[in-house]
Amino acid sequence: MCDVHLPAKLINGGIAGIVGVTCVFPIDLAKTRLQNQRQGQQVYKSMMDCLVKTVRSEGYFGMYRGAAVNLTLVTPEKAIKLAANDFFRHHFAKNGQGLSVFKEMLAGCGAGMCQVIVTTPMEMLKIQLQDAGRIVITSSSKLVATNPLLSRSYNSGTVTALATPRPASATQIARELLRTQGIQGLYKGLGATLMRDVPFSVVYFPLFANLNRLGQSSADQSSPFYWAFLSGCAAGSTAAVVVNPCDVVKTRLQSLNKGSAEEAYSGVVDCVSKILRKEGPSAFMKGAGCRALVIAPLFGIAQVMYFVGVGEYILDNSPLGVLSP
C-alpha cells in the first residue's frame, strides 16, 4: 500500500481546519472587511478597530458571521490541500531519492489546483456573510451597513441599512446564486482563487518542508512538535503575505453587495487596473497583517495534528480495523 495514509491525512487536515477556524475566524472577518474598503471610505482604521466596531454594531457573535460555512467546508478544503500535497510528493519521490525544491513546488502547485474545487464556493459564501455587517460611507457621507438587518447606534450617528435585500443565510445565498447564475455563480472568482491558492501552495509547502528539516536531529527522525508548529506558522504567514494581492482581488470580485459609491469589477484584469488607478499599489496589501495572523496558526495547528497523528490514532482504534503498513 502507498506510504501516504490518505484517510488519516484527511482526518488530520479536517480537525486542524476546524480547530484553526474556530480560533482565528474573527481576524479573518476583519481581513475581509479591511480588503473591501475603498479609497476615501476607510471606516475601519485597523484590525482591532474593525473588531471593536463589529462588536459594537453586531454584538460578539457578529465576529463569527460566516463561520458556519467555513466550519462545514474547511474539513474537505484543508483535507484536499494537505492530502493532495502528500500524494504528489509521494508520487514525485518514487525513486526513493529526496525531492528537489522544484518537485516540492510542483507538488504544492498540484495541491493548490485541487483545493479550489471546494475553496471557491466556500470563500464565495463566506465573504457574503462576513461582509454583510461592514459599514460603508455613502456619497452623502452617511454611515450605512451592508446588512439590511442592522440599524444600531454607532458612535455619534446611526448605522442604517441598504434598501437592497440580501439572503440571511449561506443556504439562501447559494440557492439564489444557483437560481440566477447557475453553478458558475458559486464559482465566481475562480480565476482569482487559483491565482491565490496555487502560488500559496508553491511557496508554503517547500518552505515548510525545508524549515521543518532544520529541526530534525537526524534524517530518520521527525522534528519536535513545537518545531513543526513554528515551521508551519512561519511558512504560512510568509506565503499569506506573498499572495495577499491576489486575495484582495478575489475578495473584491466575490463581494456581491456594495455601497453606492463602491466600484464594481467585471473580471480580474478590470479589478487590478481599477485598484491600481484609484487606490494605488498599497491597496493590494490591505489586510495582509490579518491574513498572516489567520494563516500562521491554521497551518501551525495543521502540522501539529500531523505530528501527533490524530487521524492515525482514530483509525487504529476504530472498529473498522487498523491502517495497513
Rank of each mutant, 00 (worst) to 15 (best):
177 L>A: 12
197 D>Q: 12
155 N>S: 06
130 Q>S: 13
102 F>E: 13
133 G>D: 06
50 C>E: 10
296 A>P: 08
75 T>F: 03
9 K>M: 13
270 D>R: 08
324 S>K: 14
24 V>A: 10
192 A>V: 10
19 V>D: 00
245 P>T: 01
94 K>H: 12
138 T>N: 13
235 A>S: 14
274 K>Q: 10
186 L>Q: 07
154 Y>W: 12
73 L>F: 14
204 Y>N: 11
88 F>T: 01
249 V>K: 04
274 K>H: 00
147 N>T: 07
158 T>C: 04
129 L>I: 07
47 M>R: 02
24 V>C: 12
314 I>P: 08
40 G>C: 11
89 R>P: 02
242 V>E: 01
302 A>F: 02
41 Q>M: 12
292 A>R: 10
247 D>I: 00
155 N>C: 02
135 I>K: 10
157 G>H: 08
82 L>E: 15
160 T>F: 09
275 I>E: 06
19 V>H: 02
94 K>Q: 14
127 I>R: 08
87 F>D: 00
269 V>W: 02
232 G>W: 01
308 V>F: 04
120 T>F: 02
186 L>V: 09
224 P>N: 07
75 T>V: 10
37 Q>F: 03
168 A>G: 15
238 T>P: 01
154 Y>V: 03
112 G>L: 04
146 T>L: 11
148 P>M: 03
35 Q>G: 12
248 V>M: 04
79 A>I: 05
117 I>D: 00
100 S>P: 09
290 C>N: 14
44 Y>T: 05
122 M>T: 12
107 A>P: 05
83 A>G: 11
109 C>A: 15
92 F>N: 09
11 I>Q: 06
200 F>T: 06
103 K>N: 15
300 G>P: 07
166 R>F: 04
51 L>M: 15
2 C>T: 13
323 L>G: 13
229 F>I: 04
281 P>N: 05
262 E>S: 04
75 T>S: 07
211 L>I: 15
304 V>F: 03
307 F>V: 05
84 A>V: 08
309 G>R: 04
110 G>A: 15
8 A>R: 05
98 G>L: 13
154 Y>H: 11
30 A>R: 01
139 S>F: 07
31 K>S: 13
320 L>I: 11
295 I>V: 15
182 G>Q: 11
6 L>V: 15
167 P>F: 02
35 Q>I: 08
10 L>R: 01
